[in-house]
């Protein structure tokens, strides 16, 4: 399940940022949005929209991000996002 979500997030990141910027980066659970991907704020918003479109309103990424403290937000990883989504995403066919 987590692998599925990770794959989806990686695909969405390519859509948002473009392959050129990500060609030297292997996106994994420990990949940091800020430090490694240098994702801009509007790009993260676009990613959040794609997550909502894919997984529904229950993912509520805006509230998730708003509740994070400064350190956690600065060091947010793809894995943090995947773990947030895990319980909120129904496995296919359920």
């Amino acid at each position: 399940m987590a692998d599925d979500i990770l794959g989806e997030i990686a695909r969405m990141l390519v859509e948002v940022v473009g392959e050129d910027f990500l060609q030297d980066v292997e996106i994994g659970m420990d990949t940091a949005f800020n430090e490694e991907l240098a994702l801009e704020s509007i790009e993260f918003v676009a990613l959040a929209q794609r997550v909502r479109d894919r997984y529904g309103d229950g993912t509520d990424l805006a509230a998730f991000v708003a509740d994070l403290d400064l350190d956690r937000l600065t060091n947010l990883t793809v894995g943090d996002l995947v773990r947030h989504l895990g319980p909120r995403v129904r496995p296919a066919g359920v």
């Binding site: 704020s41 509740d67 937000l73």
Partner: peptide, 22 residues
Amino acid sequence: DGAGPGVAALVRQASRRPDSGG
């Protein structure tokens, strides 16, 4: 000053990508 977590996100606009979209 601890103005809020959103600050960090906005600071991220200081992209290290030299030709960043922003």
